[in-house]
Simulated scan of single mutants.
Amino acid sequence: MKWVLVWLVAMTLIAFKVNAQEGYNYLDIAGGYLVKDTYGIELSLEFGKRYHNQLELLFDYAHNTHSERNNYMLGLAYKPLITRKRNTVLNLRVSAALGTNEYDFIAGISTGLELNFAFSNGWIFFLRPKGDLVLWDKDHWRIGMLAGVKFPIN
């Protein structure tokens, strides 16, 4: 009888812990290398919506080591779900951002995929291929790979 009670309590706790990443808000930190000797860092707040879709407010920093240019951009991204299986989620990521390159106004649009791996403590590791088109900047294309971690904030 004790084993049945322990088993039921354990299954109940596991069932409440496993919520398939829906409805959570995250603080994202990502960094990586982009083509043409550029390093990129993104900080963002991600808001979980229905059906595992997400909305993201982002700050994007890019530093080109060759031309010593810095880009600062603020933007918004929408990430609809493509597929989900166990602890893995694949999203399409579409974003737009506005900012400066220390000299001029710049604007950027981006599309790509985001692959998320969820851990039992709520943290998420993700890989994000970056494909940005930046208007009114010397380097129009930012292509590369970012890796990062999402921390739950609720």
Rank of each mutant, 00 (worst) to 15 (best):
T83R: 01
L45I: 06
G48L: 12
Y24I: 07
T65M: 07
Y39S: 09
H63Y: 08
W141C: 03
Y61E: 07
F117M: 15
A118P: 00
M73Q: 03
F126A: 15
K36E: 15
N53C: 02
K150P: 06
E114W: 01
V6F: 14
G108A: 10
T65A: 09
S110A: 15
G144T: 07
V149D: 07
W123H: 08
A147L: 05
A77H: 02
E114R: 09
T12M: 10
L13P: 00
G99E: 07
A147S: 15
W136T: 08
V89M: 05
N87F: 02
G31I: 13
L8Q: 12
R69G: 02
F16E: 08
E22A: 03
E102L: 09
K2A: 01
Y33H: 13
I41Q: 11
V6M: 12
G131F: 15
G48D: 08
N25L: 04
L34N: 10
W136H: 13
N70M: 04
F119Y: 12
G144H: 15
N121R: 13
A147F: 04
Y51K: 14
G75F: 03
F16R: 11
I153L: 11
W123M: 12
L127W: 08
K79F: 06
L13Q: 05
N87D: 08
E22F: 14
F119K: 14
D28H: 11
I41G: 07
A107G: 09
R86K: 03
K85L: 02
D132C: 15
K150A: 14
D139R: 11
Y78S: 02
A97G: 05
G32Q: 10
K150L: 09
N87R: 05
F16S: 11
L90K: 03
L133T: 02
G148R: 00
L133R: 01
W141D: 01
A107M: 13
Y61D: 08
L98K: 01
S110N: 13
E114P: 05
V6I: 09
L74E: 05
Y61P: 03
F105K: 01
S120E: 07
K17F: 15
N154G: 13
F119M: 15
G122H: 06
